[in-house]
Every structure is written in structure tokens, then in C-alpha cells.
């Protein structure tokens, strides 16, 4: 029995490795792009900029209030067929954009929450010293808000890594998709192959969580920003 599992594993490993690399790639792209977009949106929302704050609010509530699978279908099936030329992207682009946009909605709320959680007295003192709005944000508020984002941000990153599995439904050859293809080759070993895949996801997510715990202790941040 063990021998059989060993031979399955060794024959699938290069194939699953390719899937893992795609999972790694798409998750890193979504995390980087989503964090950049989300940071800008969260910053703008925390500053109560007229019009933009409301518009971004709608963006965030729609993205957080609907299933990612449905959003993925919109990016994959609907947008490319709207006739707008730059939206007629291939399936891989659709998947990358969908996941990045989804990530940005969570990051934006964390960033906004963290900025608002910095005590008012901090920016008030900076104001009284003659700093303008940008100086207050840059030198006083943002450095303190960054610490507060560490714990919730790592939670979102792990969630996004796991959400990449959903991209298998639009044919992205990531880890889950490669696993499903493997099952066609070894239909009797469904349980083992899914177990193997779950283990690989775990090997990716666990260090992220450990790193987050370490970083959290390092910056001494309190858990004050809720994910939902």
C-alpha cells in the first residue's frame, strides 16, 4: 500500500510542482497588486475625500458582499464580451485581475481601519506643530498604522492563497487543477491525491502564518482590526 502511494507521489510530483508554481505565482501577483490598490483605496477612504470615498465604498461592499466565484465569472465570461477592447483578455489575465481586485477590497478595509485606529491625539499633535495633512500622514499616522495592519493582513494573505484553488474552474493550471487532472490518471486514489494537495497548500500557508505571528510579536501590535 505504502509502496503504491510512493509510486503515485513520485510520478505526480513534477506535475503537481508545476501546479504549485502557478499557485505561488498567481497568489503573489494578487497579494502585491491587491495590496497596492487596496492601500490607495483604504488611504483615500480614511481621509473622507468627497465622491471618491463613496465610490470606493461601493467598490468594497460589492466585492466583499458577493462570492469570489461569481466575481470570477464576471471577469471571465461577462467583461470580455462587453465589446470593450481592453477587456477582451484571456482566461489567465481574467483570473489574475479578479483575484487582485478581490484582495484589494480586503486590504482597503484593513488599511482604513488601521489609519483610523491611530489615536486622534497623534495627528492633532502633528497639526498643532504645523504639519500639513500629507506630513501628518507620512511621518506620524502611517508608520503607526502599518504596525496595526500586520496581523489582519497576514490573515488575508492566507485566505487569498487558499482562494487561488477556485481559479481551477476557469482552467488555470494551478495546484487544485493539476490535482483534478491527476485524479483522472489515478481515479481510485481520489482521497490520497486530495490529501497530498491539501498538504502542499499547508506547507505554503503555515510559514506565512508563523511569519505573521513572529512579525506581530516583533512590532507588538494588538489585534484591533477585524477582518469582517
Amino acid at each position: 500500500m505504502l509502496e503504491r502511494y510512493w509510486s503515485i507521489t513520485s510520478s505526480l510530483l513534477p506535475f503537481l510542482w508545476k501546479g504549485f508554481l502557478e499557485t505561488l505565482y498567481v497568489s503573489l501577483v494578487a497579494i502585491v497588486a491587491g495590496s497596492l490598490i487596496g492601500a490607495v483605496i483604504g488611504l483615500v477612504r480614511s481621509q473622507r475625500v468627497p465622491v471618491l470615498t463613496g465610490l470606493f465604498g461601493l467598490y468594497i461592499h460589492v466585492l466583499r458582499g458577493t462570492p469570489f466565484l461569481v466575481q470570477l465569472y464576471v471577469f471571465y465570461f461577462v467583461l470580455p464580451n462587453t465589446g470593450v477592447s481592453w477587456l477582451s483578455w484571456d482566461s489567465r489575465t481574467a483570473a489574475f485581475v479578479a483575484l487582485s481586485v478581490y484582495t484589494s477590497s480586503y486590504v482597503a478595509e484593513i488599511v482604513k481601519g488601521a489609519i483610523e485606529a491611530v489615536p486622534r491625539g497623534q495627528s492633532e499633535a502633528a497639526t498643532a506643530l504645523g504639519m500639513n495633512r500629507l506630513q501628518r500622514l507620512w511621518y506620524v499616522v502611517i508608520p503607526q498604522a502599518l504596525k496595526l495592519t500586520v496581523p489582519p493582513m497576514s490573515g488575508v494573505y492566507v485566505m487569498i492563497i487558499k482562494s487561488t484553488a477556485i481559479l481551477s474552474v476557469v482552467g488555470i493550471s494551478e495546484l487544485t487543477r493539476q490535482g483534478e487532472v491527476s485524479i483522472l490518471r489515478f481515479p481510485r486514489d481520489v482521497l490520497f491525491i486530495y490529501g497530498l494537495i491539501a498538504f502542499i497548500y499547508f506547507l505554503y500557508c503555515y510559514p506565512v502564518l508563523r511569519f505573521a505571528r513572529w512579525a506581530e510579536r516583533r512590532v507588538g501590535a494588538a489585534r484591533i482590526v477585524d477582518l469582517d
Partner: peptide, 19 residues
């Protein structure tokens, strides 16, 4: 902002920059 730089203020709760 320029005017405020000429006026020092001391708060009840100090409001030192924590970082």
C-alpha cells in the same frame, strides 16, 4: 499650518508620537 508652527501647544494627554 504656517501659523500653527508659531504656536506651541501642550495637551492633557501629552500626545507624544508613540513610534
Amino acid at each position: 499650518n504656517r501659523l500653527r508652527a508659531e504656536i506651541g501647544m501642550v495637551f492633557q494627554h501629552f500626545n507624544l508620537f508613540q513610534h
